[in-house]
């Protein structure tokens, strides 16, 4: 394997055989070829990297970053929108609740006032009728009382007539009854 037929640089250029078995990395005969090909391939690689590959990868990374930033911004915007919607909804809810309470309070006070008014009216009516009834009672009582006096005078006159046989004077009887009623 070592003795292949390819020309070994060291063998070709050093007539004395002992250098051929020297340490290859220190064989200066091979340096010019290595340097030239290193320069060529390195410069070629450098140009290809700096002009083609690296700008392309850089732009890909930049694009991705921009895309991600755009997405994050859009997400932020949407979140803000949803927050606003939630706030609006809550405000509407609070408004509606306040409205409902106001309506309830108004209705309650209206009904209270109405019932109060009705009660007053009824009370007034009742008290009027009561007063009227009391008046009627008083009148009736008075009439009854005056009737009682008449009956008493008549009865007294009749009793006296029976007892003594003569009818006493009306004035005397009336005076006596009045005196008796006063006692």
């Amino acid at each position: 394997m070592a003795e292949n037929n390819k020309t070994v640089a060291t063998v070709e250029h050093t007539p004395s055989g002992e250098h051929a078995s020297g340490f290859p990395p220190f064989n200066s005969q091979t340096f010019p070829s290595q340097l030239i090909w290193l320069a060529l391939s390195f410069i070629l690689l450098y140009v290809l990297m700096s002009k083609l590959a690296l700008p392309r990868i850089g732009s890909i990374l930049e694009e991705r970053e921009k895309h991600i930033e755009g997405d994050i911004a859009a997400a932020d915007r949407l979140k803000k929108q949803s927050d606003e919607a939630i706030a609006a909804y809550e405000k509407a809810l609070a408004d509606a609740r306040a409205n409902a309470q106001a309506i309830a309070a108004e209705t309650r006070s209206k009904q209270l006032a109405e019932s109060e008014a009705m009660r007053k009216k009824l009370e007034d009516q009742l008290s009027a009728r009561l007063a009227e009834a009391e008046k009627t009672i008083a009148k009736t009582k008075e009439a009854a009382m005056s009737n009682v006096r008449g009956i008493a005078v008549d009865t007294a006159k009749a009793i006296v007539e029976r007892l003594i046989g003569t009818s006493p004077a009306d004035a005397a009887v009336a005076g006596a009854v009045t005196d008796a009623l006063k006692r």
């Binding site: 250029h13 005969q29 070829s33 290595q34 090909w37 390195f42 690689l45 990297m49």
Partner: peptide
């Protein structure tokens, strides 16, 4: 000195080409 395309040169070219 001789300038030649060597096995080392071949690998350099392969490296540059492969990386690209």
């Amino acid at each position: 000195s001789e300038i030649a395309f060597t096995n080392s040169a071949a690998f350099m070219v392969v490296i540059a080409g492969g990386l690209t």
